[in-house]
């Protein structure tokens, strides 16, 4: 297999900010890489460099074997980009937006119209096709932007936080669409702030922060590193908290945390933890108002990976910079 996306030591500075501090990324053809990171981690910067919109200050990158700096036009023939902020023309209709992009991709007007209708249907925008994009909701704009990036049936697709701002149903639609692309053999690099999303879609996950890679693994491997799922229990009666804590220690991989005064959470690795906890709770006659099993949040991922609290870590760096 050849690498569809290959980046070595990418560095990008904006004034004093080092947005990227030597990033390596490899995505094999037909695979999905999830780039996971908090605000300001450098996700957008990395995507923009790979999609030829920014020039790196250091390092090299190729897409489909073509250099993103020296063969930018050739790279642009291979890629589709959905940026973090929709790049659609608000004064054109959804249809006109897509037809224009199709024409710029050397389709005839007829071909462009056919392709545009296909995509509008796929993204549930057919009814809004004749409306100006400025009348679209945020989610519709996002889907229009996504359609625009797929018109040329690109071999490599970059999606910068593709589901941020979408409601759960539309998010699922976008996930399905991404899976369909993968089935057609498309290589995808997507950025996200949610482990859940990376886990659902990606073959491999790279976690970045402050422009550096802090972890790279398969979703399974990463979940193992960060303690799999998180079990959360909220007893109806606060008085039973100590007993709930006792019980959670048995299933958890470490001491339970108390994110809220009446809530306990603990990472678990065993898939059957939930049923076991339910059984144990009912055996002890403890009633709960909330019981859930979820993937860790980005904050928890960072806590597990770096051993420090993200907000605390940020506070130290800010102080350090100010000093």
């Amino acid at each position: 297999m050849t690498a569809a996306i290959e980046a070595r030591g990418l560095v990008k500075r904006f004034g004093k900010t080092k947005a990227l501090d030597g990033i390596d990324l490899t995505v094999e053809e037909g695979r999905v890489l999830g780039v996971l990171g908090p605000n300001g981690a450098g996700k957008t910067t990395a995507v923009r460099i790979l999609a030829t919109l920014l020039k790196p200050d250091g390092g090299t990158a190729t897409v489909s074997g073509l250099d993103v700096v020296h063969q930018a036009t050739a790279v642009r023939r291979k890629i589709g980009l959905t940026g973090q902020f929709a790049s659609v023309d608000e004064d054109l209709t959804g249809m006109q937006n897509l037809v224009m992009v199709g024409q710029l991709l050397d389709l005839t007007t007829r071909q462009a119209k056919i392709r545009a209708s296909e995509l509008l249907a796929e993204f549930d925008l057919t009814d809004a096709a004749g409306r100006l994009a400025k009348t679209y909701s945020g989610g519709m704009r996002r889907r229009l932007d996504l359609s625009a990036s797929l018109i040329g049936r690109p071999a490599v697709v970059f999606l910068d936080e593709p589901t941020t701002g979408l409601d759960p149903a539309k998010r699922d639609d976008v996930w399905d669409m991404i899976r369909a692309l993968v089935k057609q053999g498309t290589t995808i690099l997507l950025t996200t702030q949610y482990l859940e999303e990376a886990d659902a879609l990606a073959n491999e996950i790279t976690v970045i922060d402050h422009g550096s890679i802090i972890a790279h693994d398969t979703p399974q491997g990463l979940k193992r590193q960060v303690g799999g799922q998180t079990l959360e229990v909220r007893p109806t009666d606060v008085a039973s908290l100590p007993r709930v804590r006792e019980l959670m220690i048995r299933f958890g991989t470490r001491e339970p945390e108390q994110p809220a005064p009446d809530l306990l959470s603990v990472p678990v690795t065993d898939e059957s933890a939930l049923t076991q906890v339910v059984a144990a709770l009912s055996a002890e006659n403890i009633s709960v108002s909330e019981l859930s099993l979820r993937l860790p949040s980005l904050d928890e991922v960072f806590y597990s990976l770096t051993g420090q609290n993200r907000t605390a870590a940020d506070a130290t760096t800010t102080k350090g910079a100010a000093a």
């Binding site: 030829t52 036009t73 642009r76 589709g80 902020f85 790049s87 659609v88 608000e90 991709l105 625009a148």
Partner: peptide, 12 residues
Amino acid sequence: KGIFDRFRSLPI
């Protein structure tokens, strides 16, 4: 408004 980003990602 970011429309240039769309143009710049196209082979024109």
